[in-house]
C-alpha cells in the first residue's frame, strides 16, 4: 500500500496563554523554592483554560518559567493527564480498575465506543467527547464508575475558573445514555 502521510492540523497561532492563566501560574510559583517545582501545576493551569497544551503554549510557558522547552516537554509527555493533543469538550473517563472490571467496565466501554463511534483515546467527529479510560479511580465500593469532566474551565459564582466534573457511580449499561445526556445538560444547561 502506498504510504499516506498523516495530516496533522496546524495549531491556531492565537493559542496564547492568557493573563488569567499566567496570574494563576505566578501564584503557584510562590509555593515552590524553585520555579521548576510548579511545572506540573502550571501545565495543568494552561490546560484548564485551553483544554490541552499546544506546542506554542508549551514554548510560552517554558519561557515564563525560565525552563528549557525540552525539560517542560519531557514533563508534559510523562504525565498522562496532560494532553498534548486537542481533546473534546467532555472527557469520558470510565474506570478500568479491577473492581470496576469485575462489575462491568468492559460492557460500558463497549457501549460507549458504539454509541459515540470512537475508540479509546479518540475524539468524536463533532469534537464533543474524548474517551480515555483511567486506572482505578478510588471509588471501588460504587463500581463500576466513570468520571465525566469538562476539558476547559467554567468561571464559577466566585469568579474562579474551575473544571466541573461528575463521578457517575453504579453505572448500568441501560442507564448509560441517559447519564451522558444529563452531564451534557449539567455542562451546558
Amino acid at each position: 500500500m502506498e504510504y499516506q502521510p498523516k495530516i496533522i492540523a496546524r495549531e491556531p497561532s492565537h493559542h496564547e496563554i492568557g493573563a488569567a492563566a499566567l496570574a494563576e501560574i505566578d501564584q503557584l510559583l510562590s509555593h515552590y523554592p524553585q520555579p521548576q517545582g510548579a511545572a506540573i501545576d502550571a501545565l495543568t493551569v494552561v490546560q484548564k483554560y485551553r483544554g490541552w497544551v499546544s506546542d506554542h503554549a508549551l514554548k510560552q510557558l517554558a519561557e515564563h518559567m525560565s525552563m528549557p522547552v525540552a525539560d517542560l516537554e519531557s514533563v508534559a509527555t510523562f504525565y498522562n493527564l496532560i494532553f498534548r493533543r486537542e481533546v473534546g469538550k467532555t472527557l469520558l473517563h470510565p474506570c478500568n480498575g479491577l473492581s470496576c472490571q469485575l462489575l462491568g467496565y468492559k460492557s460500558i466501554q463497549r457501549q460507549l465506543r458504539k454509541e459515540i463511534n470512537i475508540d479509546e483515546g479518540e475524539t468524536s467527529a463533532n469534537g464533543s467527547m474524548t474517551l480515555i479510560s483511567l486506572p482505578c479511580l478510588g471509588a471501588c465500593d460504587k463500581a463500576p464508575v466513570m468520571l465525566l469532566r469538562e476539558s476547559t474551565a467554567t468561571i464559577n459564582a466566585a469568579g474562579k475558573a474551575v473544571i466541573r466534573d461528575k463521578l457517575l457511580t453504579h453505572i448500568t449499561t441501560t442507564e448509560l445514555s441517559a447519564m451522558l445526556d444529563d452531564f451534557q445538560e449539567f455542562i451546558h444547561g
Partner: peptide, 9 residues
Amino acid sequence: MEPGAFKDR
C-alpha cells in the same frame, strides 16, 4: 492509585 484502594478519598 493502588487498584482497589479507596480509603484516602
